[in-house]
Amino acid sequence: MTVDINFNVHSDARGGDPDSTSPTLRKYHKILWSKPLPNGIFFELITTKTGAYLYHNSELGEFSLGSDAITHSYRNQKRKQWLIKQVSNEVNELFDIGSTIGAYTVFPKNKIDNKFTINQARGVNSLIDDRFDLTLECIRLSYEGQGNPLYDTFLRYKKFFELFDNFSGYVDFFLLNDLLDENQNVKFYLPFDNFKTKPTFNGIEDYKLYKKGVTNFVKSRNKRIENYIKLNTKMPAHNNV
Rank of each mutant, 00 (worst) to 15 (best):
S220V: 05
F43E: 03
F174A: 13
P199N: 05
I101S: 03
T71I: 05
T153P: 02
T197N: 15
I46L: 07
L141T: 04
D129N: 15
L127W: 11
N183W: 11
I84R: 01
K234S: 11
R131F: 04
S58F: 06
E226T: 09
F42R: 09
S88L: 06
F217D: 00
T197R: 14
E205S: 13
K158V: 12
M1H: 14
F217C: 03
E226M: 10
T24G: 04
V171S: 05
F43Y: 07
D181R: 06
L60T: 05
T117F: 01
N239M: 08
D4A: 05
Q77L: 10
I139W: 02
I101H: 03
H10G: 00
L127D: 10
H10W: 00
L65G: 01
G102A: 09
T71V: 06
F107T: 02
D130H: 14
Y157P: 00
G102L: 04
R75M: 12
K158C: 10
Y189P: 01
I118W: 07
P108M: 11
Y157G: 03
N232D: 08
D133S: 13
N110T: 15
A52W: 01
L179I: 08
Y28L: 08
K85Q: 14
E182R: 03
R156H: 14
F174H: 09
C138K: 02
F192N: 06
A103Y: 03
E90K: 06
I204C: 06
K211R: 12
G145P: 04
N76D: 15
